[in-house]
Amino acid sequence: MGRLIDKSPPYQPETPLRLVVVGLSRTGTASLYLALQELGYTPWHMCEPVDDPSRMYNQWTEAMKCRFFGGSRPYDRKDFDKLRGRYDALLDIPACLFWDDFHKLYPEAKIILTTRSGESWFKSVHSTIIPWLEKPLLKFLQHFDSKRLGPEMCMVRTAYKVICDNDYNSSKMIDSYRQHNERVRNGVNPEQFLELQLGDGWEPLCTFLGVPVPDKPYPRVNNTNEFNQGAEEADAAMLTGMFKLWLAVLVPVSVAGLWFYFQKV
């Protein structure tokens, strides 16, 4: 069975992959995403609006299955170039799970590990991402939305299968989080590596990247309340869109059915 990525046309990125942020979600990656935009990067993050989310999400899921579950031939540099497109920095899941592949395939790229304490990370994930994944309505609706919700939930769930085998209890998840961080610390060339903790701000980041410190506060976004509010707004917009789509289909079908019925009466 052929891979999805093989069906995408060849792509030659205009810019090399300059940076990979390999910290797991809920370690300040959304704030860093905005900071990198300010510093002139074109970063991709889960919060980045994309023109064709189903393509990107489905290909990331395929990349994980090929790399971690023996689905098919793992992605190489040409495959990842097609997947990332114009983005020269990658953050958040699932990109962070391929940290060793990117370090090998793009030896010129710098690596940043964003971290926080295991306990605070677990609390944050269980206040945001896990409730979203386990929401009954979304688990039902994902089967009717192949454009965004279905591919997105499949991608995120596959990422957490890689991280902790979808076992969300505290000991399993915190151990998995700490093991991921240790593997990165021990597996990356120190000259290309920076560990950035929540609250570190501009200075260590800009020193590492060799750029001036902006004359503005470091971004602080996507805390628990902001995440959940954004998720609720996105869910409401999705439900409205699906409702309009169902009306567009059901009303003409119902009218046609009534017309045929009364023709026979």
Rank of each mutant, 00 (worst) to 15 (best):
R183C: 08
L133P: 00
T29L: 03
T27F: 02
Y218L: 04
K65E: 15
I130L: 09
R220M: 11
N169E: 15
S117R: 08
Q263P: 00
L250D: 03
A231R: 10
E233K: 13
G201N: 08
W121N: 05
R73C: 09
R26L: 07
Q229A: 13
V162G: 01
C96R: 08
D6Q: 13
I112H: 09
M64W: 04
R67V: 04
E48C: 14
S171M: 03
I174G: 04
L24K: 06
Q59N: 14
G85Y: 10
V50G: 05
P53K: 13
V221L: 09
G40W: 09
I174H: 11
K123V: 07
R73T: 13
L196C: 06
P49I: 07
Y57C: 09
L247I: 08
Q142H: 06
S146I: 00
Y11M: 08
M153C: 05
D81R: 06
R178H: 10
D101H: 11
L194Y: 09
V253E: 05
M46S: 11
Y160P: 00
R26Y: 02
K123G: 05
D235G: 06
H143F: 15
D200E: 12
Q59E: 14
R18I: 00
Q192C: 10
K216V: 12
V249Q: 13
Q229F: 10
A35L: 07
T27W: 00
R116W: 01
L34I: 00
N189K: 13
N181M: 11
G23L: 03
C154V: 13
G150N: 08
G70V: 11
A89Y: 05
L250E: 07
Q179S: 14
P16D: 10
P131A: 06
